[in-house]
Design a protein around this nucleic acid. Sequence first.
DNA 1: TTATCATTTGGCAAAGTGACCAAATGTTAT
DNA 2: ATAACATTTGGTCACTTTGCCAAATGATAA
Lengths: 108, 108
Amino acid sequence: MTEQEQLRLTARAAVLKALAHPTRLWLLEQLQQQEHCVCDLTDGVNADISTVSKHLSVLKQAGIISSRRDGKKIFYRLETPCLLKMFGCVEAVLEKNAKAQAALLKPS
Amino acid sequence: MTEQEQLRLTARAAVLKALAHPTRLWLLEQLQQQEHCVCDLTDGVNADISTVSKHLSVLKQAGIISSRRDGKKIFYRLETPCLLKMFGCVEAVLEKNAKAQAALLKPS
DNA sequence: TTATCATTTGGCAAAGTGACCAAATGTTAT
DNA sequence: ATAACATTTGGTCACTTTGCCAAATGATAA
């Protein structure tokens, strides 16, 4: 692995890392259709507002979402919708795993 | 977030988490064309064999790669090639970020 | 100004991750 | 059986992540 590759892959890993948390994935799904303020998002999550805020900050840091202020509220919106389509392949992995599990349980 | 969603998103996050490390991304790229043994892969990475082995184990646990033994060697192979295509969108995020950076530096 | 609302930030404890070394396992060759 | 090779596993340590609370910030309303 050259130093070039190291840099490239570390950057790529950083984006994936930002995605790799159930709460953050849920937040992204909420932002899929329209922007939302933190208060909206907090209602749906079983966690403190500050926790949600920090998750949003992680996604923003990674460049996945952006924010704008409107009065007292801050609205977040998805920057790269292709990410959500991308999860199709992740689902494929999960389905494959589920089938493999099933096959083990039923050894014909 | 319902309990259903929680489970679904945790599973999805687990796959993304397995991907979210530069060394593991590098290993996947090596496995893109053909299967490889641990010894092959260790040569290219600047890390202990045991470290590489553990990274491979993480990928295998997630169902992303599989392994087969052939004599003394163990060969790993990619199970879901679509994952590599998927990185196109991750690159899009990175490019967008790079442009945003550039724009900040050159405030016309 | 003061109060109030929406959000972020700092601090802390618990849990998880990543890397190395050394020891254990499994396989083939002598 | 013993030795040698390829890989995995267990242990340890430093570092990071996550989540909550409390305090700070920013903006509007009274």
